[in-house]
């Protein structure tokens, strides 16, 4: 008996399947972009892409954090509120005269701290992530208005520099510093997921948490870590947003978690965990950005069409994942 007879199918037919969803997102992105280019001359300007990164940088950072959580099979509904809370806390502390660096450190600690607590509640008390992060969402949003019921402007020099500094080429195309931070976060996250034990444990838990436990992987630590990472990404996203808007507003980023989840799913990450890539999430966010850009360029379409189109795309992608046989547990 040859042992190879026990394998199923040739390797070429099997390997790409994991990459198919990401490739489809890429194809969709290219198609939408070429539609834009063919319809509107200004669309071909590189700055359109740069603007997407400028406008959606904070969303991308948050989506990267969400990718970690979803890869373990969890979900984090608190991200939008944590983004708002971080921006709010920064604006408030700056207004009360704290030095920028200290504010930055404090603001970047709050998100991960909340994430850590939520992770502990989820892991040690075995409460559904959905419920715990929902409470986290309520808590963070409540903190926003607790701090102030109206928006607080930011006039700090460091913040305004970050908001206004442009890094560009002689032809006038530019990105903000926020975009560079975003790219750095994406690269670090991709590296962590692909090359570190923490990253591989994330995939293992998403694949089968009980096996992961029996294989001796640090399930508790990893699970708490992903919510902490998501909290950190939300905090960074909140800082980026405050760079972008130069204010902290209690009702900003309401419902953002939906866009984030949509971006992650469109980027090919399976909501039940275990399969997906940071690169896909980048593509997912770009898809959302290009849709928005197309609708803005069109001018005749109302903003609600964005939601309908995103919903439609979600449907198409989920249906597609079903069809190519990515199994939901």
């Amino acid at each position: 008996m040859t042992t190879s007879s026990l394998t199923t199918g040739p390797s070429w037919a099997r390997l790409p399947r994991r990459h198919v969803p990401v490739l489809v997102t890429l194809a969709l992105l290219l198609v939408m972009y070429s539609i834009g280019v063919s319809q509107y001359r200004a669309f071909s300007n590189v700055q359109v892409i740069f603007n997407i990164f400028i406008d959606y940088g904070f969303l991308l950072v948050v989506a990267v954090g969400m990718t970690f959580v979803i890869l373990t099979g969890g979900i984090d509904l608190s991200v939008g509120s944590v983004v708002a809370m971080t921006a709010m806390v920064s604006a408030w502390l700056l207004q009360s005269g704290l030095p920028a660096l200290l504010v930055l450190v404090i603001a970047l600690l709050i998100g991960p701290a909340l994430g850590f607590l939520m992770g502990c509640a989820i892991h040690f008390f075995d409460i559904q992530p959905f419920i715990v992060t929902l409470a986290g969402m309520f808590f963070a949003r409540g903190m926003c208005t607790f701090i102030s019921s109206s928006s607080i402007p930011i006039t700090d020099g460091f913040w305004t520099t970050m908001a206004q500094h442009r890094i560009g080429d002689p032809r006038g195309n530019f990105v903000s510093i926020g975009v560079l931070i975003t790219l750095a976060v994406v690269l670090v996250a991709a590296y962590v997921l692909a090359y570190t034990r923490l990253g591989r444990n994330v995939y293992a838990i998403g694949g089968n948490p009980q096996s992961a436990l029996l294989m001796g992987l640090p399930v508790a630590r990893t699970r708490i870590a992903v919510y902490t990472i998501s909290g950190l990404c939300s905090a960074i996203g909140g800082i980026l947003l405050s760079f972008y808007t130069l204010s902290g507003a209690p009702l900003i980023a309401v419902g953002m978690e939906l866009d984030v989840i949509a971006a992650v799913v469109i980027g090919g990450t399976v909501l039940t965990g275990g399969s997906g890539y940071v690169f896909g999430t980048v593509l997912g966010v770009l898809v959302l950005g290009v849709i928005q850009a197309l609708i803005t360029f069109d001018g005749s379409l109302n903003s609600w069409w964005t939601k309908i189109v995103i919903g439609g795309l979600l449907f198409a992608f989920i249906l597609f994942q079903r069809l190519i046989g990515i199994r939901y547990k």
Partner: peptide, 18 residues
Amino acid sequence: IGIQPIIATLILMVAGRG
């Protein structure tokens, strides 16, 4: 179709507002 409920209804949650 057999889509996970949380995702299936997420579609309408997003698109429904629109």
